[in-house]
Design a protein around this nucleic acid. Structure first.
Lengths: 368, 368
DNA sequence: GGCTCCGGTGAATCTCGCC
DNA sequence: AGGCGAGATTCACCGGAGC
């Protein structure tokens, strides 16, 4: 762990803070966590979960149910924790919030109003939802998660290749199918009852954290409950900070997380995207003699050709410029990836120049 | 049609009103329509051009009607049309609104603020969404629909048994899977281009109207576009009132609806009986238009025939029920596999309906 | 006629780092 | 902070052409 400095104050990593989540978040340094996962109370009628701005409890349910008063109270509650969450998040950080139709529209609107930039809404499709017993509506078989960056310009983390690989080689969609948390995964309290009414499945957090964090990142969960976020973060080599008001939940979560064995470093490595690999200038291929100045390149479709010049640019048909510029000019396209566009001949075969770039990158890896 | 009285003023049934939807709705009598389906502008806020990896350009939704100065301006627009919608809706009426993450949270919050009572949020899962071409986010593969009654105490319409029957004997869930509107269903304008950038699939409206209206009900669509709501309502024996500002859309919608052949009365009756529980929803074949309500099926031996109803059940010779029940009744057998028993005609040939089920299963496999 | 191949396209808030 | 240039990036389906 780095020594505390004014620039990098100590974070209570891998611990569970007690008390109100707003106060706890405000006790953390600003711009300090990479990701927030928030599973706030859904049910507008669970008034015990709600607090007024002055932190007093909202009155208990009485005979006269005023839904507008309750919506207002819920909005206040949302504004308070979301403001604190915004403050503690790094500029390039992101937030996930999960909810149902009771609260998610208010949460989503608040996120936008506060300047968060929505990246996706993701639907958790439950394979085994609770049926609608009265037969008066559709079976409520999903919940909604909103993924948003701190601002429109945030450079948020998204492990595209990892998600694509996990989805059999095609892009991961915005609908995720998982069963509810049941069986042995479902935590029991000392009385043998289910410990928490809305414990989320670890599979959900697993995908979410692999998608939008990197190993070593700090994940904050202001409504920690029985600590699913902490358990999965620990397993995946991410740090967590939990906040939970209820002593019983904190206790259960701590015991649960203590049993988690982190995955080995090797298992945590995800498919690297090409974007993350070091840049190799085309000129280096010429400098190293992998390609000769004067040698001719052809487009993959065989329709165009160009000559390599000593400075690593191409020329042909009156066009000069980088491998990308000449390719784009030939194709009349706004842009072109010259690395995959151009080919050269070796031993009678047509080979993409990208294979030469890959050779250089492999050498660079070996040197580390 | 009933004679106009002070209690039941004349409604412009089965017509398309022109002009601004707020003014048009305010010109209608209050408390007069059974259902509203609203597909308002999404306020996409697209920035620049987007190209596919093959350098072709994506045809963006950059129409003037989707441009708003700010979130505040969009909220103002939403408040205005929603207030007018609330007024024109019967006390026991309901509303559907469809949107994406750009606007749906604001729409949902506005619905709640105005006293609408959310019954479900429904996810339209697209089997064939547009990919995320830059690999920067999850593929945006769904849209969200909110179903809400006018007030908490509204006695809204929900054809539970029809939905259950269409879902092959188990409760209909809140996630609906349909392809985008493409191919011949997609309307073209006089110039041969797609007539409207956001035409919704008829299958979506089919399920929605069967679920939450009865034959003879009045369905209002304040953002009529090319009239999918009117076409499906007409086919299903519901009245529609459309409102559309653009002359070209009104013209195309009118031509489209004029071609619709309403289903026979018998095909429209919704199921009230319980059914056995088979595995793959026959109703989906109807919703998707693979089989047409009113179309005749014949038994493989050619001795029996039955007609398809809009909710995915069959009727004939005084028998009503699932494909299995009707087959069993005809054969005097205790049970019958309707999937292999029933056949339909395509291009002069007799084809088992099981081939259609297989098509859907193939899609489902591909989606997981 | 049937099959394969190929081009087109869909409500999309769709790059990043250096100078 | 804005401009510039490198270079990374797509899935399911429909329909027409061609064989």
């Amino acid at each position: 762990m780095a020594r505390p400095t004014p620039e990098a104050p100590v974070l209570p990593l891998d611990t569970i803070m007690s008390g109100d989540c707003v106060a706890a978040m405000n006790a953390l340094p600003e711009n300090s966590v990479d990701l927030i996962f928030a599973d706030p109370p859904y049910n507008l009628q669970l008034r015990g979960e709600l607090h007024r701005p002055d932190n007093s409890m909202v009155d208990a349910v009485d005979d006269h149910w005023d839904q507008f008063e309750s919506l207002k109270a819920y909005d206040h509650f949302t504004d308070r924790w979301m403001k604190a969450a915004h403050r503690v998040l790094k500029p390039d950080g992101a937030i996930w919030v999960i909810g149902s139709y009771h609260n998610i529209f208010r949460v989503g609107a608040s996120l936008q109003d506060r300047g968060f930039w929505i990246l996706n809404d993701v639907v958790w499709r439950k394979t085994n939802p609770m049926p609608n017993f009265r037969g008066k509506r559709l079976t409520n078989a999903h919940e909604t998660m909103i993924w948003a960056s701190k601002s429109e310009s945030s450079k948020y983390t998204f492990n595209y290749e990892a998600m694509k690989a996990a989805n059999d080689g095609v892009q991961m969609r915005s609908d995720w199918t998982f069963p509810l948390c049941t069986g042995h995964e479902r935590l029991k309290n000392a009385r043998g009852e289910k410990a928490h009414p809305t414990q989320k499945p670890e599979a959900l957090l697993h995908r979410l954290l692999v998608a939008t964090t990197n190993p070593g990142d700090v994940v904050l969960d202001p409504f920690f409950g029985t600590g699913t976020t902490g358990a999965v973060a620990t397993m995946l080599g991410r740090h967590f900070i939990g906040i939970e008001r209820e002593e019983e939940y904190r206790q259960l979560a701590a015991e649960r997380i203590a049993k988690v064995r982190p995955l080995e470093r090797e298992a945590l490595e995800t498919t690297t995207s090409k974007r993350a690999e070091p840049r190799v200038p085309f000129g280096q291929l010429v400098e190293r003699g992998m390609l000769r100045p004067g040698e001719e390149l052809r487009s993959g479709n065989g329709r165009h050709r160009a000559k390599i010049r000593a400075d690593g640019t191409l020329t042909g048909d009156g066009v000069k410029g980088s491998i990308h510029q000449v390719g784009a000019a030939y194709e009349g396209a706004p842009s072109c990836n010259g690395w995959t566009y151009w080919h050269f001949r070796r031993e009678g075969k047509s080979v993409s120049i990208d294979t030469l770039r890959q050779q250089i990158r492999d050498e660079m890896v070996k040197m580390n």
